Simulated assay, not measured.
Amino acid sequence: MADDWTEDEYVEYLHGERRRFAWVMQRYGGITPAQAEVAALERYPYEAGTVLFRGLIFHDEAWHWAMLSIYGDLYWVEHPEFVYPSPEYEALD
Rank of each mutant, 00 (worst) to 15 (best):
E17S: 00
Y10Q: 11
A66Y: 03
V38R: 08
I31N: 01
W63H: 08
F82L: 07
E9I: 00
R20I: 03
A48F: 08
H79D: 01
H59A: 06
L56Y: 13
G49S: 13
G55P: 09
E78N: 14
A40K: 05
L92A: 07
L74R: 15
V38C: 00
G49H: 11
E37H: 10
A91L: 14
A2K: 08
R43H: 12
G29V: 12
L92P: 04
E78C: 07
A34Y: 04
S86G: 11
L68G: 03
L52P: 11
W23E: 00
P80H: 09
L41R: 15
W65N: 01
F82C: 08
P80G: 03
H79P: 02
R54M: 11
Y28D: 04
H79L: 01
W65I: 01
G49E: 14
P80L: 13
E61F: 08
I70N: 08
Y10L: 12
D60T: 09
D8W: 01
F53R: 03
R27H: 06
M67G: 04
V51R: 15
W65F: 09
E61Q: 14
P45R: 01
G49C: 10
G29R: 11
L74G: 11
D60I: 02
L41D: 13
V77M: 12
G16E: 08
I57N: 09
G49P: 08
V11G: 03
Y89M: 06
A62K: 01
P85Y: 00
I57R: 15
R20C: 14
A2I: 04
A34E: 15
D4G: 13
A66N: 10
P85H: 02
G49N: 13
G16Q: 12
M1S: 11
D3F: 02
Y75N: 02
L52T: 13
E78D: 15
E88I: 15
E81I: 02
A36V: 06
I70P: 04
A91I: 10
L68Q: 12
M67I: 06
Q26S: 01
W23S: 03
A40N: 10
E17W: 00
E90I: 15
